[in-house]
């Protein structure tokens, strides 16, 4: 996939965030809080837990369904980040050889279990974060974070980081196209060229960023990003946060998967 295509792929998250669904209509604060509690609960499980984590999959699944998000697209995004999680967990089976179970003649060692646990946690957390962005969009997300007490300067930083990411992406894609158009010989362009391009990209981006900032100033920007949609934390939001939090705690406290299994026996 070319850089330019990636650039538009990311823009798709903004498009998803503009959709209308019961989840999209929730105040961003409720979504941020719930996802934050979800992350803490996922991380708090002991390292050999795998099955106990399973019931937590309900949260992303319900959100995906209610918000009408494209599951395949979001899973591809998760897969894009998977190498990081795999790298982190890969050494576990080599280092942690504690036998913790026996399946036929195969001894299950702790390393493999914790590796599986890392992958599952990775799936849960990254998917939840992506769903959060796809249901709120960066502007509402930042506004929500600010209302929750994040210093305004940080919220604006995130917003600009995001906005300029697109600017630099577009600029970079144009430069690479320029290189591709003129490197049709047998020899690939030397690596040194990319150092020059990187420097050039930085200078161009600074210029561009300055022009955008000037555009914002010209329209009265004073450091606060205001949004038209009224943000109200009502009973819907309270119910959303409380309901899910209770569910997460129930999963964390009792081994819900096991109990459900027993109940069904």
């Amino acid at each position: 996939m070319s850089l330019a295509t990636h650039y538009y792929e990311i823009g798709r998250m903004d498009e998803l965030a503009r959709a209308d669904s019961p989840i999209h209509r929730l105040d961003a604060r409720a979504q941020i809080l719930t996802v934050a509690i979800f992350l803490v609960v996922v991380m708090s499980f002991p390292r050999y837990e795998t099955f106990a984590l399973m019931p937590l999959l309900l949260f992303p699944c319900v959100l995906l369904a209610l918000a009408g998000l494209p599951t395949g697209y979001l899973l591809r995004k998760v897969a894009l980040a998977a190498p990081f999680a795999i790298c982190v967990g890969l050494c576990n089976p080599l280092l942690d050889r504690t036998p913790i179970g026996q399946i036929g003649s195969f001894t299950l060692i702790g390393g493999w279990v914790s590796f599986a646990s890392i992958l599952l946690r990775f799936l849960l957390t990254v998917l939840a974060a992506l769903i959060l962005i796809a249901c709120t969009g960066i502007h509402r997300l930042c506004a929500g974070l600010e209302q929750l007490g994040l210093p305004r300067i940080l919220a604006v930083q995130i917003l600009f980081l995001y906005r300029y990411f697109f600017v630099i992406g577009a600029e970079g894609a144009r430069m690479l196209r320029g290189v591709a158009m003129r490197s049709t010989g047998d020899q690939p362009p030397p690596w040194r060229l990319y150092a020059t391009l990187a420097g050039n990209l930085l200078l161009r981006s600074i210029d561009r960023a300055q022009r955008i900032y000037r555009g914002m100033l010209a329209r009265g920007f004073d450091g606060e990003v205001r949004l038209l949609r009224p943000a109200t934390f009502g009973w819907r939001e309270a119910l959303f946060v409380a309901g899910w939090s209770l569910y997460f705690l129930a999963v964390r406290q009792g081994d819900l998967a096991l109990r459900l299994g027993r109940a069904l026996e």
């Binding site: 969009g137 502007h139 955008i212 555009g215």
Partner: peptide, 8 residues
Amino acid sequence: DDQLFMPT
């Protein structure tokens, strides 16, 4: 493009 920077 320098002037339009919001999501919609």
